[in-house]
Lab assay of single mutants.
Amino acid sequence: GAPPLPPYSAGGREVTMKKGDILTLLNSTNKDWWKVEVNDRQGFVPAAYVKKLDSGTGKELVLALYDYQEK
C-alpha cells in the first residue's frame, strides 16, 4: 500500500494524480510535499508518492507510484 501521508505543510493547493502518471516537477525544496504540474494544473503531491525520472530533456519529471486524491 501507499506510505503514510506526511502532515500537510506545503501551503498551496494539492493536485490529484493516478498511479503511472508522468508529472513535471516544479519544486522539490519541501522534503514532504513536491510541487508538480499535471494537465496544466499546478499543485502539491506527497514526495513519497512519486519517483524522479531521468528525462534527458532538462525538464524534471516524476512518476506517480500511487493514486493521490487532493483533499
Rank of each mutant, 00 (worst) to 15 (best):
E14Y: 15
N27Y: 05
V15S: 03
T16D: 08
T16W: 13
K19E: 05
S55H: 11
K18I: 07
Y8L: 10
P46I: 02
Y49R: 04
V50N: 00
K19C: 05
Q69S: 14
A64G: 03
K59N: 10
D32C: 09
G20K: 02
A10C: 12
N30V: 04
L61K: 09
Y8V: 12
Y8S: 13
D54M: 11
L5Q: 06
L23I: 06
L61R: 08
G43D: 01
K18M: 09
T57K: 10
L65D: 01
D40V: 06
L5A: 07
G43A: 04
G58H: 11
L65I: 10
K35I: 14
V38K: 15
N27H: 05
V50G: 01
L25M: 03
G12I: 08
D32Q: 08
Q69V: 13
M17A: 03
K59G: 09
V15Y: 05
E70V: 12
A47I: 02
E14I: 13
V45E: 00
G58I: 09
L26T: 04
Y66G: 02
E70T: 13
D21S: 06
E70C: 08
V38W: 07
S55M: 14
V38E: 04
V50Q: 00
A2G: 09
G58N: 11
K35C: 12
K71E: 13
N27A: 07
A47C: 05
G20V: 00
A47M: 04
D67R: 02
G12F: 11
P4L: 08
Y68F: 15
L5W: 06
S55A: 12
V15E: 03
A2Y: 11
G20P: 00
P3W: 05
T29V: 08
L65Y: 03
L61Q: 12
N39R: 12
A64R: 01
D67F: 03
M17N: 00
T57P: 14
V45G: 00
D32L: 10
Y68M: 03
K71M: 15
T57F: 10
L5G: 04
L63H: 04
T24P: 13
N27C: 09
K19P: 03
V36W: 00
G56C: 10
S55I: 12
W34N: 01
V15R: 02
L61S: 07
L25N: 01
A48R: 12
G12V: 07
V38M: 14
A64E: 00
Q42R: 12
G58A: 11
T29Y: 08
E37V: 08
D67K: 03
Y66Q: 04
A64N: 00
T57R: 09
A2P: 15
W33A: 01
K52T: 07
T24Q: 08
Y68G: 00
D21T: 06
S9I: 10
G12C: 10
N30P: 04
S28M: 10
D67I: 01
I22T: 05
K52I: 11
I22V: 11
M17K: 00
P46Y: 02
G12E: 09
P7E: 14
